[in-house]
Simulated scan of single mutants.
Amino acid sequence: MEAEDLKRLVTVRMPYGKYQGRLIGDLPGAYLAWFARKGFPPGQLGRLLALSLELDHNGLRGLLDPLR
């Protein structure tokens, strides 16, 4: 994880798929878990999706509220 990744979760939008246009930090946990099973995409997007899943799974989404 890079220092700016938490900020990116509330600024970067999902570029494709069912939730296209939604902020990465707002994606549903079930959708993130689906990506974990199928394989995260390479690069920054995959890293952000994995981080968002970790926050969701551990009940830490509240960490993003001050960054919004």
Rank of each mutant, 00 (worst) to 15 (best):
D26W: 03
G17P: 07
P66F: 09
R13S: 15
R8Y: 09
L45T: 05
S52Q: 02
L67S: 04
K7A: 13
G17Y: 09
D5F: 15
R68Q: 12
L67V: 00
E2N: 09
L60W: 07
L9N: 14
Y16E: 11
E4A: 08
T11C: 01
D5H: 15
R47N: 13
F35E: 06
L67K: 10
D26M: 03
Q20F: 01
G29F: 03
V10W: 04
F40Y: 15
P42K: 15
L6D: 04
H57Q: 06
G59Y: 06
L64T: 01
E2R: 09
N58H: 10
L55A: 02
A3I: 13
Q20D: 09
P41G: 11
F35L: 04
E4I: 00
F35S: 01
R47I: 00
R22V: 15
Y31S: 06
M14K: 05
L55G: 04
E54V: 15
L49F: 14
H57G: 06
R22C: 05
A36H: 04
Y19H: 12
N58W: 04
L23A: 14
D5G: 15
L49V: 12
L53Q: 10
M14W: 08
L63A: 10
M14V: 10
P66T: 01
D5P: 07
E54I: 15
L51F: 00
G29L: 03
L51T: 00
K38Q: 14
P42T: 15
L53I: 00
D5Q: 14
K18H: 09
R61L: 12
A30H: 02
L49S: 14
Y19T: 01
L45D: 07
A3K: 13
P15I: 02
R37F: 00
E4Q: 07
